[in-house]
Design a protein around this nucleic acid. Sequence first.
DNA 1: GACAGTTAGTAAAACGATTTACTTAATAAA
DNA 2: TTTATTAAGTAAATCGTTTTACTAACTGTC
Lengths: 339, 339
Amino acid sequence: MKKNQSKISIKDIAQELGLSITTISFIINKKAKNRISDEVIQKVEAYIEKVGYKPNSAAQSLRTGKTKTIVFMVEDISDPFFSSVAKEMEKLAFDSGYKIIFCSTDNKKSRAIELISMFKDRQVDAYIITPPEDFQDEIEQLVSENQIVMLFDRFYRDADYNYVVLNNYGSTKRAVEYLKNQGFKNIAYVGLKTELSTLTDRFDGYKEAVREANRENLSLLISFDDVKSEVGNKQFEEFLELHPEIDAILFATNNLAITGLKILKKKNIQIPEDIGVITFDDRDLFELHAPAITVMSQPITSLAKEVISGTLKLLKRKHSIQDKIQIVLDGELIVRKSS
Amino acid sequence: MKKNQSKISIKDIAQELGLSITTISFIINKKAKNRISDEVIQKVEAYIEKVGYKPNSAAQSLRTGKTKTIVFMVEDISDPFFSSVAKEMEKLAFDSGYKIIFCSTDNKKSRAIELISMFKDRQVDAYIITPPEDFQDEIEQLVSENQIVMLFDRFYRDADYNYVVLNNYGSTKRAVEYLKNQGFKNIAYVGLKTELSTLTDRFDGYKEAVREANRENLSLLISFDDVKSEVGNKQFEEFLELHPEIDAILFATNNLAITGLKILKKKNIQIPEDIGVITFDDRDLFELHAPAITVMSQPITSLAKEVISGTLKLLKRKHSIQDKIQIVLDGELIVRKSS
DNA sequence: GACAGTTAGTAAAACGATTTACTTAATAAA
DNA sequence: TTTATTAAGTAAATCGTTTTACTAACTGTC
């Protein structure tokens, strides 16, 4: 009674109740209707409840080929945006009986390949991926192997995959137009030097907005690795010196904004008097900042909801040759003191 | 060649090479020495490499009872402290062939119980847990079922479990002493109303430090649910009004500090001229704040390293009746302008 | 040349579920 | 009474590993 209690299997239940394994299995899987009498069903269910039986998931996986596990391959799980989404996703998935495994690529292609290879061969039912740069071949490969793949945060405009992303183009355009309406004339864009759709779309939105306003394109693109380094700082400082006419800046990511705000503070530039500021992604830091920073915020909860419900929908499908799930959500402008 | 390629098993390899399943398995598991000829070993390894065979983990789990999975049950995965630790942990664990499943309890006992029940019965090799309040019985239960349990961030002083925690008592004491040495006289403590060791130890450290300095205990404890609400704001404001003598505040968590800084700003209290500030946990927000905030920072990387290496050590043990793994790390004081 | 000892390998029983293809008894239809 | 139909349940194969307990051939020793 001490050591043996460790595990109770379907077989034990069958033996105890004088039934066959098949019968128990049918009942557990709700396939007992028109096969097994209500009386027996009740008896078995009561017994299962009583002893707290839980099926062994390894055995289930082996037999069915499904693991009830979803991988969420993210750029960086310690980034507040991704970790907030992750938290919401986790909850929704768990309630549907799925576990989520998170992993960070740091936007490194090699790391991402490594991770996918770890999960290959059916250890996982679906992949939710924020692909690093130059990753379309790997996505294509995964899809061609009939894996379920959902892209998140970034996607490939020319290819037909499942995705949930922000309307980066439109949201950026709206942000620039807001700045314009506030009376700012020379609006600069500080973004990342990358081919990720998230950032190229934001840049395109900016360019279109300034074009429509007959204004000059004043932009600085910093490479991903330099954002938090001295190199990035220097580039930003030089950019400011080169363009004294700038009276507002749109930062394309929260990390860029943090770097930028440090420099602005250092140079004693007043916000919003000297330069107005707006940035992507809300963080409590921006609310607390002096002055509080206007942001284009991503709808975390809705994004998470769409990603999970979409992925679960894909998991339920019999044939993969159906319409793709493609969701685009708008950002929300939260106006504060900085612009 | 198209559909059948889906999976390749040990059996296929055995057949293809005219060997037995056993032989292949031995070679894969490095148990072939003194059993199988080098020639055969080489041939098999080459073939495995060539076809890119990966063992089916469900079958392995079923047979061995191990899932190569660790659960990290955390208070809130979207909290920067926990998500930073999570990221480091994930990396270390993955490199040892373990997957990590994260989940958030929101410090709710009921949610934690729910989650544990989901993972019960060997779906998981080990639990890393930041227990919510009043959770010792559940931990005890888990341990008594011979599950591997590692407590993180908080622990039970009177019970003998595995844990990795910060030296909260000593770190807080040091922080107070630093304030004292900086010339602050009336040092207040703003903490959480909770029995979690993390917070009680910090409070104890504070009390001891002011006692040694023959100073008054000026403290406010806010309950967890009120921190980000109006109730919390009001309590803090009243506290300040009640104690105009306060010239420095130690915040016990970053969330408390954020709330507090908002109020201080609203009341136009100058930092550090009117009141000096120091808080637990470093966040980029504190560095960027005007003025930059002095913090008692937790050694994220070391904490993650200790947790994972400790857990892996436990996983390797044959007998659970060995010494517990109990690690206590010191915080690092990062001095900035606020004190 | 008989015996033990080593070397190189294999057969087969698990692990715990799911599922197909039965059996048997009772009922309804002809 | 015979036959077809339905209801209620079960036997056994299978998923892909790991591992125990073997066999068979060879080597060396006395």
